[in-house]
Structures are given as C-alpha cells and as structure tokens.
C-alpha cells in the first residue's frame, strides 16, 4: 500500500472516530455548552377587596434576576414543567417601583401578569448572557 493510501486511511479513521465521539457524547456536550441557570419563585403580594377577591399588585424580584437593557428592565423566566425537552427562557419587561438591598419591587403590569404563571420560575443567576427563546440548563431551583 502506498504512503498516500495509508495517509488517506489515517485521515478517514480520525474523521469517523471524531464524528462518532461527537455524536455519542452530543447530549453531554450540548448540556455543558448551555447557559447554566439558577431559578427561584417570584414573591407576589396580593390583597382582597370587595370587587376582586385576589388582586395581584406587586411582585418582589431578586436584584440579580433583573437585566437592564438600554432603557428597559427585563427578567428571564422559565417554565418549571417542560415535558422532558430542554427548557427555554423567555424575557418579561418589568416596571420597577422600588428597591431595597436584595429585591426590586415591581409593578404587576400586563406583561408580567401574562408571563408569570403558577409554574414559572425566575432566573436569578446565569453563567452566560441569555436571549429570548434560548435553551438553558437548570442547575438549582429554589
């Protein structure tokens, strides 16, 4: 066998073995490359009044969960139940009313009302910057 043919065989073996390993470990590689996030439940304040039994007025969000983008502030949320698929984050615009050392008091506006559900968790820590619709890996839920 000529030297050229031996080199071609070496390249072919390396190529197929590399692709085989990448395919076999694709799930683990993908998980390692996903943003690693930690989530928590938002603290929601509500009161009764005569007309509406439960009226949600304010929400308390950890300061680390808020991302400031130009003029707006957003939080990223993820659905707790994602049916075995990789969870994805979605952004919610918020209006900040007040703040203390750890939390922002946020007005319960329309986007927050529609974005937060009973199974929603807020992202308060991420290993990489997030974008809307991005797949993530949840390392800790609080």
């Amino acid at each position: 066998m000529t030297r050229r043919k031996k080199n071609v065989i070496k390249i072919a073996v390396i190529f197929f073995v590399a692709l085989g390993l990448l395919t076999y470990f694709s799930d683990e590689i993908d998980r390692m490359l996903l943003p690693q996030i930690k989530t928590c439940e938002p603290v929601v304040d509500y009161y009764n009044n005569d007309h509406w039994k439960y009226y949600i007025d304010e929400c308390y969000i950890p300061k680390s969960a808020v991302v400031f983008d130009d003029d707006s502030a957003v939080v990223y949320a993820v659905n707790e139940y994602y049916d075995g698929e990789t969870p994805t984050v979605y952004s919610i615009e918020i209006d900040i009313r007040d703040s203390d050392e750890l939390y922002y008091t946020v007005e319960m506006n329309d986007s927050l009302m529609s974005g937060l559900t009973a199974t929603t968790q807020l992202v308060y820590h991420t290993s990489k910057p997030l974008s809307d619709g991005e797949r993530v890996f949840i390392t800790e839920e609080n």
Binding site: L19, G20, L22, T23, S26, D27, I29, D30, L33
Partner: peptide
C-alpha cells in the same frame, strides 16, 4: 457541537 441532528443524519 450544538446541533446533533445533523450528526445523526450523517450516520
């Protein structure tokens, strides 16, 4: 690294 469906189609 990110879209394993193409690797699976290759195989």
């Amino acid at each position: 690294f990110r879209r394993a469906q193409y690797l699976l189609k290759f195989w």
